[in-house]
């Protein structure tokens, strides 16, 4: 119930005019410094997302390595 109300609240905020207005004002305020903040956030998100994907590939490699050593161990 709580989650649903939170969801609906965030949806109204996302689509609502008031939120759009404040967002605009925020990015134009203080010499548009928040545009720089947003740009850095975009890059941070991009790199972190890619590193998570890389981490998943590494996990697969690790699993292969583990399986290999397990097989080897049973033979000896």
């Amino acid at each position: 119930m709580k989650i649903r109300s939170l969801l609906s609240l965030s949806l109204t905020l996302l689509t609502g005019q008031t939120f759009a207005q404040t967002k605009e004002n925020l990015f134009y305020s203080n010499g548009k410094i928040y545009v720089v903040v947003a740009v850095i956030s975009i890059i941070f998100t991009g790199i972190v997302t890619y590193l998570i994907l890389l981490d998943r590939r590494l996990k697969r490699t690790e699993k292969e390595l583990r399986d290999k050593f397990d097989k080897k161990g049973s033979k000896d």
């Binding site: 010499g31 548009k32 890059i43």
Partner: peptide
């Protein structure tokens, strides 16, 4: 320098361009 309409966003030079 805060360039004209770029204002503080001129700092993006250190992020957008090196990409």
């Amino acid at each position: 320098n805060n360039l004209l309409f770029l204002d503080e966003t001129v700092r993006n030079l250190n992020f957008h361009v090196p990409m």
